[in-house]
Amino acid sequence: MNSRVTDKIATSIFVLFAAIMAGTLFALLGYILYHGFAVIDLDFLTSNSSSFREGGGIKNQLFNSFYVLFITMLFTVPLGIGGGIYMAEYAKPGKVTDFIRTCIEVLASLPSIVVGMFGLLVFVAWTGWGYTILSGALALTVFNLPVIVRVCEDAIRSVPRELKEASLALGVTHWHTIKTVLLPAAFPGILTGVILSAGRVFGEAAALLFTAGLTTPNLDFTNWNPFNIHSPLNIFRPAETLSVHIWKVNTQGIIPDVREVADGASAVLVISVLIFNLLARWLGSVIHKRMSGSK
C-alpha cells in the first residue's frame, strides 16, 4: 500500500468522523424541532401550564428561565471577570496559583446534581430561604463561575503582549492598563464566552431541582412589586424553569398531553440555546471587525 492510498484512507476516515458528528447533531435537532414545531404556537408560549388538564403552556417557565439566568449572570459576570483579571494579571506563577487553578478546574467539572445538593444544604436550608430564585441563581453561580473565570482569563491572556507593553511604556499604571487596554481588547472574547455559558445555564436542570424548586406560584404579570409573592420579579419565590419543567412533566406529569408539552418545551429550550450561540458568534465577529477596522 503506497503512501497516497494511506493518505486517502486517512482523509476518508476523518471525513467520516466529522459526518457522524454533524449527522448526530442534525438528526437530534431535526427530531426535536420537527416534533416541537407541531406544538409551539403563540398560545403555548403565553398560557399558564396546567396541572392535570390538556393544553397547558409554558409562559411562567419561560419567564423563570430567563429571570434565573439574568440573576445568575448578575452574580457571575462581575465575579468571573474579577477572578479572570486576577488569574491573568496578578497571580504570580507558583504553588498558590496552581492550587487556585486546580480548584477552578475541579469546580468546573463538578456534576451539576452535586452542585444542586450543595445548594440545597447552603442556599435553601442553611439560609432558611426555602426554594427560591435566589437559591437557584446562587447554585448556578457556583456551577457557572469557574467557566466564566476561565473564559475571562483566556480572553485577557490572548490580548497581544505588545499592547500591554505599549501602555506600560507610556507610563500608564497596571490597573489603568487593564481597564483601558486589556479589558476592551479582551471584550469580544469575554462576551462570547459569557453568552455561551449563558446557554449552558439556561438549559441546566439538575442544579435547580433542589434550589429553585419544581413549582411556581400564580404569577401576576401586572404586579411589578418585587416583594410580592405573586410578582414575577420576586427573587424569594420558587421558580420552575423550562428544563426543570421538561423533567417534571416527564417524570411526574399527570396531564394527558405530556408528550406534546415536553416536545414543545424542548424545542423552545433548544431554540433559545441555539440563539445564544448564534448571537455569541455574530456579536463576536461584529465587534472584532469594528475594532480591527477591517470591512
Binding site: 507593553e165 501602555s167 511604556a169 507610556l170 507610563g171 481588547a185
Partner: peptide, 27 residues
C-alpha cells in the same frame, strides 16, 4: 509613571491599540 512619561518607547512590531487613530495618540 514619570520615568516612562519622560522616556518613551517604540517597539519592534508596531503595536497600536485597537482604538481610533486619535485615541491612540491621545491615550
Amino acid at each position: 509613571v514619570s520615568l516612562r512619561k519622560d522616556v518613551g518607547m517604540v517597539f519592534q512590531k508596531a503595536n497600536p491599540f485597537p482604538k481610533s487613530i486619535y485615541e491612540n495618540v491621545a491615550y
